[in-house]
């Protein structure tokens, strides 16, 4: 690391509050459609603390997907800053960003996004492959993760041979393979029936409560969002309101909201 870069890193790191995994500072994203400029995000400020369970909610067209791309460091803002663990992502090269993304962020997508030519085991191993982790370690970890989601007997199956719920559980295993601090779920229940949706939600909840992972869920579904500790509402590219979700009540008061035990029982 060059000295100027190091300084920058230190500055940004000290700027960020301790315990913040991702921070969006006045983030703008403007798409150019021919000569027309379409702003998808208009100055979003967002801090996500380590170990929290946050939902970003909004209707389609609200800038929700763009916001997810920013949080997931898949894209860089037109204006403003995104800090991942205190590091300014716009200063990183594409490849460095890919490496960091692979290590610190686990993605769970609405459409599962498994590689169809690879088996469940190979899919879970893939993020570790890109981090150059030795094969025997990769395989051991992938098997453990698949057993954790109760797919230990399906390791050799390809995605096409698995149900939607099973595929999403493989995807969750994959998201966890590099033991990331942040799990980013994009409409994780959108393509599942309600029973499977509950399974997946309970699993994300467990990850947050038991493993201490930061979980960020992007959704348009208020039922799903309410399980989070904090819900940020997005409209027209701006955060228009934040409210405490049932997840918060649950963890702080042990109150009447759906408990993680209930989720576990459905697995």
């Amino acid at each position: 690391m060059s000295s100027s870069k190091a300084r920058q890193w230190n500055e940004s790191h000290s700027d960020a509050h301790d315990g913040v995994i991702i921070e969006l500072q006045d983030v703008w994203k403007i798409y150019k459609m021919g000569s027309v400029e379409v702003p998808a995000l208009r100055g979003v400020n967002l801090k996500i603390h380590k170990g929290s369970f946050v939902a970003v909610m909004g209707a389609s067209g609200s800038g929700k997907s763009t916001c997810m791309n920013m949080i997931g460091c898949l894209d860089v803002p037109t204006k403003g800053k995104v800090y991942l663990d205190g590091q300014d992502v716009s200063l990183m090269s594409e490849s460095a960003l890919a490496q960091i993304r692979g290590r610190k962020i686990g993605f769970v997508f609405q459409t599962f996004n498994l590689i169809p030519t690879l088996t469940a085991l190979e899919n879970v191993m893939l993020p570790m492959t890109f981090q150059n982790i030795p094969k025997h370690k990769r395989e051991k970890r992938a098997r453990e993760l698949l057993e954790m989601v109760e797919l230990g007997d399906r390791t050799g199956h390809k995605p096409g041979e698995l149900s939607g719920g099973q595929q999403q559980r493989v995807a969750i295993s994959r998201a966890l393979s590099n033991d990331p601090e942040l799990v980013l779920a994009d409409e994780p229940t959108g393509n599942l029936d309600s029973k499977m949706g509950v399974e997946v939600m309970s699993f994300l909840s467990r990850l947050n409560k038991e493993e201490g992972k930061t979980v960020v869920m992007v959704t348009h579904d208020s039922n799903g969002a309410k399980h989070a500790e904090m819900i940020h509402k997005l409209m027209d590219g701006r955060i228009v309101g934040s409210e405490v979700g049932e997840g918060q009540q649950d963890s702080s008061t042990g109150g009447k909201a759906v408990s993680s035990m209930d989720y576990t029982s459905t697995l």
């Binding site: 898949l74 490849s95 490496q99 890109f130």
Partner: peptide, 16 residues
């Protein structure tokens, strides 16, 4: 194309 996107999101470098 989609698989390329998936692989990049889970940490594949351009060179990979």
């Amino acid at each position: 194309t989609k698989e390329i996107g998936i692989m990049k999101s889970i940490g594949a470098k351009n060179s990979s």
